[in-house]
Design a protein around this nucleic acid. Structure first.
Lengths: 227, 227
DNA sequence: GCAAAAGTGTTAGTCATACACCCATGT
DNA sequence: ACATGGGTGTATGACTAACACTTTTGC
């Protein structure tokens, strides 16, 4: 079988999660071109002939969010023959977690607009993008139990309640406040700051930041999160 | 950007693990054709224009092992521009666990021979196949901690020592016999048979089989294995 | 002073770990 | 009878889970 016998276009689609206002959100674009012009889609694009996949993924994400150096992971490759209407296109899905506030959303060439949607109320998506999102969510939910998240999604300084809400959102459960704090503080992962949240009609919450060193260690080593 | 602007060939490579004689093994072929004729490689092949990826993966695996209905999982897609010398080829890696004894190895078109190699002493592999194997091993090691394995790798009837050895091999540790048994039996996953191993110069070990129902439940739900 | 969220300990039960000897079989 | 691996129980410490009230702040 010759290497040139069968060919296909290769695209990359990105599932970009953010966390804002106590909700998990995903970045969607409205397609500016056919096929499915005007439909909601995951941001994505084609891979250049001379581009490594990881590089292409970063390029696409940078174009969409304006940001570099994002922790991004290859998730899964979707290649059903008819997943894309015009031709056989194999799509490699990358996923990323970013801080919603940090980047200015600017729509790329192939998008009319780029918007954060709560994952709990995502519109219908084009092609097989709903399946992609479902896979990404499942993966996120699993990963959360084995390695810390938060660093990627929360602002630099955050309260324990924010962190807890993040976990509750992703895991779709509720957690006990005291046990959560005991566990998370016991990991030696957070550094308490001498700063407090201001402007709330209630007691001001202490702010924390991640111990970057420890965070990376736990991330690579894997840890267990069960509450 | 047109969907036909950039194209590439798509291949699938399979990392097929087996467990035999107390060792974890991987199925390799000796390439029958250039490029890298005569080099050791993971079994793989090109994806047909009208073939879904999962179907193609199964077809390729069937051709190589003669077996259908194998639990096979998509692992990762490798697409560095120069990973393959003759052209841009993107390769999707699938991984599988099978029982070594069950299948007759028959070399496919593109192989001179197909052989089980202990993973501890794998020869140098062609292209980026060593990287693929490394990723598969890492993944196996991680998965083992969160879901049961064994069903796929061990014969239908097996001893607890065989199962323990499997875990020790994959995790690259040693485990305490009593604790291992306590834990694994406590999962209600194994069914004790009234049969015993024969022909050993020592006490005959009781044979067990998996409770298929329970096994699938635990597999999908995920469980913790720490010893 | 009231509403709203922050913060804080103890207890009971479960689970992981460490550890050593006798048993059955084949030669 | 001996060599080889099979099989078994207990005690300790660690972690998980359940649970309610006081504190601080802004209005």
């Amino acid at each position: 079988m010759s290497h040139a016998e069968y060919v296909s276009s290769i695209s990359i689609d990105c599932v970009i999660f953010g966390f804002d206002e106590g909700e998990l959100k995903v970045l969607l674009i409205k397609r500016a071109k056919d096929p499915s012009k005007g439909g909601w889609a995951l941001p994505g694009g084609f891979v250049g002939q001379e581009e490594d996949l990881d590089v292409a993924a970063k390029t696409i994400l940078e174009e969409l969010t304006g940001l570099k150096k994002i922790y991004m992971e290859q998730l899964h490759t979707f290649g059903d023959v008819n997943r894309y209407p015009l031709a056989r296109v194999i799509s490699i899905v990358y996923a990323s977690l970013i801080k919603v506030g940090d980047y200015e959303l600017r729509a790329a060439d192939n998008a009319q607009e780029a918007v954060w949607h709560p994952v709990s109320e995502v519109p219908q998506l084009v092609f097989d993008h709903s399946k992609m999102l479902a896979v990404a969510l499942e993966r996120l939910k699993r990963d959360v139990q084995y390695q810390p998240i938060g660093f990627e999604l929360l602002p630099k300084k955050f309260t324990l309640t924010q962190l807890q809400t993040l976990y509750e959102t992703v895991l779709e459960t509720t957690l006990d406040k005291r046990n959560f704090r005991k566990k998370i503080l016991g990991m030696d992962l957070l550094i308490a700051l001498d700063e407090f949240q201001r402007g709330a009609p209630n007691r001001a919450a202490r702010l924390f930041k991640f111990d970057t060193q420890k965070y990376k260690e736990l991330k690579s080593k894997g840890f267990m999160f069960e509450l």
